[in-house]
Amino acid sequence: MIIFIHGFGSDGFGSKAKLLRQYCAQQNIAFIAPSLSTIPDLAISTLEELIQQWQRYEEVKLVGSSLGGFYAMYLADKYNLPVVLINPSMAPGFTLQKRVGQAVNFHDFSSYEWNETHVQSLEKYQCSFSGQRCLLLVQTGDDVLDYKLAVDKLPDAQHVIEQGGNHGFEGFERYLDEVFEFILSH
Rank of each mutant, 00 (worst) to 15 (best):
I2T: 08
F4L: 02
F4D: 01
G7L: 09
S10F: 07
S15A: 12
K16R: 12
K16G: 03
L20F: 08
Q22P: 00
C24W: 02
A25R: 12
Q26L: 13
Q27G: 07
I29G: 07
I32P: 00
A33C: 05
S37W: 07
S37L: 07
T38Q: 14
I39E: 12
I39P: 00
P40S: 07
P40V: 08
D41S: 10
D41F: 04
L42N: 15
L42E: 15
I44H: 08
S45Y: 11
S45R: 13
S45Q: 14
T46H: 13
L47T: 06
E49H: 13
I51V: 12
Q55K: 14
R56V: 10
V60P: 03
V63R: 00
G68S: 04
G68A: 07
G69F: 06
G69C: 05
A72P: 03
A72M: 08
Y74E: 01
Y74F: 15
A76E: 05
D77E: 11
D77P: 00
K78N: 01
Y79C: 01
N80P: 00
P82E: 10
I86N: 08
P88S: 10
T95V: 11
Q97Y: 08
K98S: 11
R99A: 12
R99T: 04
Q102A: 12
Q102H: 02
V104N: 01
F106M: 08
F109Y: 13
S110R: 13
S111Q: 15
Y112K: 08
Y112M: 09
Y112E: 05
E116V: 11
E116W: 07
V119E: 05
V119K: 04
V119D: 06
V119A: 06
Q120Y: 06
Q120E: 13
Y125C: 07
C127Q: 05
L135A: 08
L136H: 10
L136N: 10
L137K: 08
Q139E: 13
T140C: 02
D143I: 07
L145D: 10
L145T: 09
L145M: 11
L145W: 05
Y147P: 08
K148R: 15
K148T: 14
L149T: 14
A150R: 06
V151F: 07
D152M: 10
D152Q: 13
K153V: 00
K153I: 00
L154N: 05
L154M: 05
D156K: 14
A157Q: 01
A157N: 01
E162G: 02
E162A: 12
Q163I: 07
Q163P: 02
G164K: 03
H167K: 06
G168F: 12
F169Y: 15
E170M: 12
G171W: 13
F172W: 07
D177P: 03
E181G: 02
I183N: 01
I183A: 10
L184N: 15
H186N: 14
